[in-house]
Design a protein around this nucleic acid. Structure first.
Lengths: 237, 237
DNA sequence: TACTATTGTGTCAATACTACACGTTTTCGA
DNA sequence: TCGAAAACGTGTAGTATTGACACAATAGTA
């Protein structure tokens, strides 16, 4: 058995992470100001290169941890891009992951080191290379997925109210949902466990706080269901 | 600007194609008997390596064309796998695509050259490396996708009957569907155009032949809809 | 204490889904 | 030639889900 294949093309493999967060009002992205050439100083996704003895997802988690200090987040491979001239320096293919993180849990020091910022999706600046396209695809995937699976919870604090959850879904789909119907739909899933506590930050009638029913949640993640058919007619990205 | 990045790890990039077909009764996979080391003689997905001046999808289409003679098929990137030791020869990451092809259109000569065979999914032999896992993921994706988008048509001849379409869906989901409800659901989409012809091959009452309404079809592909909610409670892969 | 904003629960009509029934077309064999 | 069998096409009734909306309860504020 040969020690290597005959084929001669070996390319650099990059990893790029699209990091979604939610601040209670809008969807945000964690973006960095690139500090090396080319395109130094421009906005970019957080990325890095694959090491020789590192699995793809391990590398993606390394990059995510490096920026946020978090290491147990929702992380999913999105796509791999490999257009010949996508990177002007040399042929590079990039395996893109997207992650959902609770903004409250982030490591602000790590973020500062990388000159990163949480930026509202609506205010996203132009990004380098094909990163804009990656973000568009990621949002599409997030919408697609969140319509079928209750993955949105990853973006919320450990305890949250139903109105907060609704605002999240409205941010993801850039739409308005009926409060009464949303509540009924969510409660029907049995995914939420009431804590008995109330959200003290709200100024008028305080909403109930819930936590996720972890066991049910795992069932839903594995299955395939119409989570919110109301969103079927969602706006295109 | 440097001519290359400092980072030293450059790896071999493979492409593997999972090719689904349908023979009127069951879902099939086009598999090859591998004719080179390692694992020579064992069943495998059709694959190849990425060339220096070739986009990823271009490479996948080249590989698909090489085996089937077809070059205008449904082809979608599935995932990229890169576990460190997945290939015993050297570090290789593989970008996996899956394709849906109409078995009738295939180039039988090309298939023979590669010692390939259409094999029922139910009779799939063990494949090399992590190819079994790839196939499982592809089936999952196909089910996921076909529940929301009418992509199944790619697997059928240009004209087909509603009972044929139903058999296809039953094969994809390994389940039984109600004939009356299925028909109503499909007709409600307005995706089918009656040809006025009938399927002469059938032995009892001849079913109507339809073609796909290409324009409507493109609309559905772009959108996001609950195509067959009845399938929500589908069996796990 | 009245007023306002927000939350929680309920109702009802329209729609969609599921489980069936029934008639029609075609082949095959007595 | 005709009846049985098999498969196709359309329809209908009961049930569940959805979407639109009303109303009461809670908490802060003028």
């Amino acid at each position: 058995m040969p020690a290597a294949y005959q084929h001669t093309t070996r390319v650099l493999v990059a990893l790029d992470c699209i990091i979604f967060g939610f601040d209670g009002e809008a969807l945000k992205l964690l973006l960095i100001k690139r500090n090396f050439e080319p395109e130094c100083g421009k906005w970019s996704l957080m990325g890095g290169f694959l090491n020789q003895t590192e699995d793809l997802e391990t590398a993606a988690r390394r990059i995510l941890f490096d920026l946020t200090g978090l290491n147990n987040n929702y992380l999913e491979q999105l796509q791999t891009v490999g257009t010949v001239n996508r990177d002007p320096v040399e042929r590079t293919i990039s395996v893109v992951y997207y992650s959902l993180v609770n903004i409250e849990d982030q490591d602000t020091a790590a973020i500062a080191v990388h000159q990163a910022s949480w930026i509202r999706l609506a205010n996203k600046p132009a990004l380098i290379f094909d990163h804009d396209q990656m973000v568009a695809t990621a949002l599409q995937r997030l919408r697609y997925k969140a319509a079928l699976h209750p993955i949105g919870f990853e973006l919320l604090p450990a305890t949250f109210t139903i109105p907060q959850l609704q605002k999240l879904y409205e941010a993801i789909y850039d739409t308005q949902l009926d409060r009464r119907n949303f509540s009924r739909k969510i409660m029907a899933t049995d995914l939420l466990l009431g804590t008995g506590e109330k959200d003290e930050r709200s100024s008028t009638k305080k909403a109930q706080l819930y936590t996720l029913n972890a066991e049910k949640y795992r069932q839903y993640l594995g299955g395939n269901l119409t989570f919110l058919p109301e969103l079927a007619a969602m706006k295109p990205v």
